[in-house]
């Protein structure tokens, strides 16, 4: 099945919750000429995970690891949604109806429209449901 072409490697970075850590990550990516499409920070007691969708995940992984960060790839999917009221509801409803659980999600809205990034419990089933509903998934080839 061609579902794999829609599974995107999100870069996840362990970070202590203290001043300057995000700046250190962002500066390293700048130096590597890596562009960030979207990112979010999840935090627990004293630490967090910085999640980012970038144009060159392998280069970002290598540089951040070299700088001493704990870095991992996480599989996510990205769905293009209508950038108007109801756009998010449309995608969330169809996943809910397919019995797919969203573990976390974040979004970006740019000149090409809005994109929802999803970490789900069953990515293959999610890809099938989204494709069947005629929604557009962003292929991993968009992120070198």
């Amino acid at each position: 099945m061609a579902a794999n072409e829609y599974i995107i490697r999100q870069i996840s970075v362990f970070s202590e919750n203290r001043p300057g850590r995000l700046a250190a990550i962002a500066h390293a990516l700048e130096e590597e000429r890596v562009n960030i499409f979207a990112f979010s920070i999840a935090e627990a007691s004293g630490f967090g995970v910085v999640r980012a969708l970038v144009d060159h995940p392998a280069r970002a992984h290598e540089r951040l690891t070299k700088d001493g960060f704990n870095v991992a790839f996480t599989d996510v999917i990205a769905v293009r949604m209508r950038d108007e009221p109801g756009g998010l509801y449309e995608v969330a409803r169809l996943l809910g109806e397919a019995g797919i659980n969203i573990e976390y999600s974040y979004a970006y809205s740019g000149p090409d429209g809005a994109v929802l990034i999803l970490r789900v419990d069953r990515p293959e089933a999610a890809i099938a449901a989204i494709t069947a509903a005629g929604k557009e998934l962003i292929p991993s080839s968009a992120f070198a």
Binding site: S12, V49, R51, N70, T74
Partner: peptide, 18 residues
């Protein structure tokens, strides 16, 4: 410190380890 090979990228796994 958490060893690199045990970092899954997921916050929930870190919280469980803690």
């Amino acid at each position: 410190e958490i060893k690199r090979q045990f970092f899954s990228g997921e916050l929930a796994d870190l919280a469980r380890l803690q």
